[in-house]
């Protein structure tokens, strides 16, 4: 009985420590970028240190006073011991399985091609002085929200980076170059994109969905899927590494 009780004290301590490790591991391996907005990193990092500290103090106490500790009636819905294993199991799963950034399948499911997402982006600052080729996908979409007439941008140079989405609504010589925006965590990630018309003779099969590309070209106005809109007439696409921080804000 005592041994069993001691075991559960150690399991508790190990589970809390595992969560502390998990948070700090995500921070140090920059996986936190895939999960939450950088503004809230400090909370997770602080929590990681506090959890590790708690586990350390608890471990010292368990060693010094092996039979002490409160065993007050247990508080929750689970049979005793379940939450320990649930916490431990989740922390281990988190340490073993790496989170992955959302990609084109999620983008399509979250309505990238229905135009709704575009209007959800609110301009945070309108900077008319920014050179067109310095704008990111998000900058372009925000600019378009403020002044949606596509002709106003015709001929402007474009250089944007994002991942490839094959929209079923456009012909095979078009693809969507996309980014996810997160405001808090991956739970609210939503996609924004710009249509790309591939250089003459190329088909989108050459650019796999989810692959990251740098797209160079200039803006033209076209009618796609029955809608008059701004399209990048690409002159060159080059494969790039997935950035450490795949989301935009």
């Amino acid at each position: 009985m005592t041994r069993r009780r001691n075991g559960s004290l150690w399991l508790d301590t190990a589970a809390i420590a595992a969560w502390g490790f998990l948070f700090l591991k995500y921070w140090l391996t920059e996986k936190l970028y895939l999960l939450i907005h950088p503004n809230y990193f400090w909370l997770t990092v602080a929590a990681g240190f506090v959890l590790l500290g708690l586990a350390l103090v608890r471990a010292i106490l368990v060693i010094r006073y092996p039979f002490a500790g409160t065993s007050g009636p247990h508080l929750s819905l689970f049979p005793p011991g379940w939450s320990r294993w649930l916490l431990m199991g989740t922390a281990i799963a988190g340490l073993l399985v790496s989170p992955r950034a959302f990609a084109s399948q999620t983008a399509l499911e979250r309505g990238i091609s229905d135009g709704l997402t575009v209007t959800r982006v609110r301009p945070q600052a309108f900077r008319a002085t920014v050179k067109p080729e310095d704008r990111s996908i998000v900058d372009w979409v925000r600019t378009l929200t403020v002044y949606p007439e596509p002709d106003a941008y015709t001929g402007q140079r474009v250089s944007v980076k994002g991942f490839v989405v094959h929209s079923p609504e456009t012909s095979p010589n078009y693809l969507l170059i996309s980014r996810f925006i997160i405001t808090c965590c991956a739970a609210d990630a939503y996609p924004v994109s710009l249509p790309v018309k591939l250089p003459e003779g190329q088909r989108r099969d050459a650019y796999k969905p989810d692959s990251w590309q740098q797209v160079e070209g200039q803006m033209v106005t076209e009618t796609l899927a029955g809608k008059r809109q701004l399209v990048i007439q690409a002159t060159a696409l080059s494969a790039v590494e997935e950035p450490r921080n795949p989301y935009d804000y």
Binding site: L35, L43, T44, T90, P99, R100, Q105, C185
Partner: peptide, 24 residues
């Protein structure tokens, strides 16, 4: 598999975001 991975990422993101507040 992609969906499963997305669900796991989402799950972790909720936890990473919420756990500090739970701790607090």
């Amino acid at each position: 598999l992609t969906r499963l991975n997305n669900a796991f990422t989402l799950f972790l993101s909720l936890l990473v975001e919420a756990m500090p507040f739970l701790l607090l």
